[in-house]
Design a protein around this nucleic acid. Structure first.
Lengths: 251, 251
DNA sequence: ATTTATTTTTAGGCTAGCCTAAACCAGAAA
DNA sequence: TTTCTGGTTTAGGCTAGCCTAAAAATAAAT
């Protein structure tokens, strides 16, 4: 059988031959084509937007997140829909198909593994990591990611405390609570952040909060919802409501 | 002064201000714009083609190397010429400008550093390295490359024995001779290969030749220019002329 | 129910990078 | 010198991804 046809067999469930004609029976969910840099970014964005909040994502939200225009988003949604990566109904918003979700999870896996590498091996700081990982996540080589994962010791969480999906798209779920939701006298260990912008991470660095820091709430100001906390049972700090809504503690 | 203007100052020699109007005086050689994935590949290819042999590179050679058509090459040469990266005269071939050469050297630097990383840290084999590095070389982050270089211990040569250009574009030059050019009883240490195709590297692996192997020529067959050699003073081998023209030994 | 405001889509156009087919140039051969 | 031949360029066209402006659909407000 011709090599290029044999190459396709691994993505199809079965095949039959009738007089020299090969009939391929595809399982649409198992076709893992390579997607463009741009397509990957759209899918990742849709995943993130549907994760925190509503089910259906609307066009403007995507446009804003990707710093592009609504018309461009519509174009791409029609393309992704044709590729069966999203469920798209005109004027009604969009959601990922199962296959689209797998694509998103693999991009996120690559992104987070590179973040771990940059931080642990190349000594990048918490806030320098994101931008570079944003480029590296689109390098396409399953072998590379597999070896990188091994080299890093199969980490389950990235430097921001976010879980790293496995090769098959599974993620650890961490029981976590927003610092802002704790009552007086409650406490916990910092396991993640809700905002990865450099400015926020630099702020945390400055006040001495990092993954693993132990925090206890001492007082809550009813006026502006700011919090008085104790860090590592020794340093007292006042955190704004803004900040306390962006730190996750172990539950 | 406005931030976006200040951002440009680092690439210009000087500036003067006349009634609120800033005049930037550029040194055309110092402008290091970001070039597209495709542009980088053309420049790298021109560099490689002009390195081994003639000065002026012709259109068809580039087309063949990049697996594209001559017409597409012409398009790109006009574009690169407008950007001052190449000296291009219609029908007369093309060569890199000083700036173009710097771009080429930086791409090669990135490529070879990633090759070292893949081989030494991620345990890739000699022949798996190239393809992935071909993608990684276009990731654009000076900080990343600087840290990677540091992490790898500032290597001067890549896994194929080729020199790694420095940040300023300097390369070590190794005195080396082709195995094919040695006389009977001469010998040396393998310092590089002249062909990085997987098939050739897999062949070397199989017969046990790698960087650092010690080789001595025992006999040369006048008929087909094949060579009888001794490897590590213990194993006798017969190498074809083809193979002996693709192995470099220390001089 | 109708009007108004907002969101989304279509229509048409742009650039980068690629293609084929046809025209063009340069250097070798006659 | 002229002719031939092969390499090179132009002309015109394609897709991906982006844009603006205008039209259409939905949601909100009267």
């Amino acid at each position: 059988m011709h090599a290029s046809i044999v190459g396709q067999l691994k993505v199809c469930l079965s095949y039959r031959t009738i007089q020299d004609t090969v009939i391929l029976l595809f399982n649409p969910l198992s076709i893992d084509l390579v997607h463009s840099y741009t397509e990957e970014n759209y899918i990742k964005t849709i995943f993130k937007l549907s994760a925190n909040g509503t089910q259906e994502v609307n066009t403007n939200a995507i446009a804003e997140a990707l710093e592009t225009r609504a018309a461009s988003v519509t174009d791409m949604l029609r393309k992704l829909s044709a590729k069966q990566l999203v469920n798209y109904v005109k004027y009604k918003g969009v959601s990922l198909t199962q296959e689209g979700e797998q694509v998103a999870l693999q991009v996120i896996r690559k992104h987070r593994l590179w973040e771990v590498f940059l931080l642990e091996k190349l000594k990048f700081s918490w806030d320098e990591v994101h931008e570079v990982a944003e480029e590296l996540e689109h390098v396409n080589s399953p072998l590379l990611i597999q070896r990188l994962d091994e080299y890093l010791g199969y980490p389950k969480f990235d430097p921001h405390g976010d879980p790293i999906p496995s090769e098959s798209g599974q993620m650890m779920v961490k029981k976590q609570r927003l610092l802002a939701e704790l009552e007086i006298a409650e406490g916990g260990v910092v396991v993640g952040v809700n905002d990865s912008q450099p400015l926020f991470l630099q702020y945390l660095n400055k006040v001495g909060i990092s993954l693993g820091s132990r925090i206890r709430v001492v007082d809550k100001m009813a006026y502006d919802h700011s919090l008085e906390i104790v860090l590592e049972e020794e340093k007292s700090l006042l955190l704004s409501s803004e900040v306390s809504r962006n730190i996750f503690l172990s539950a």
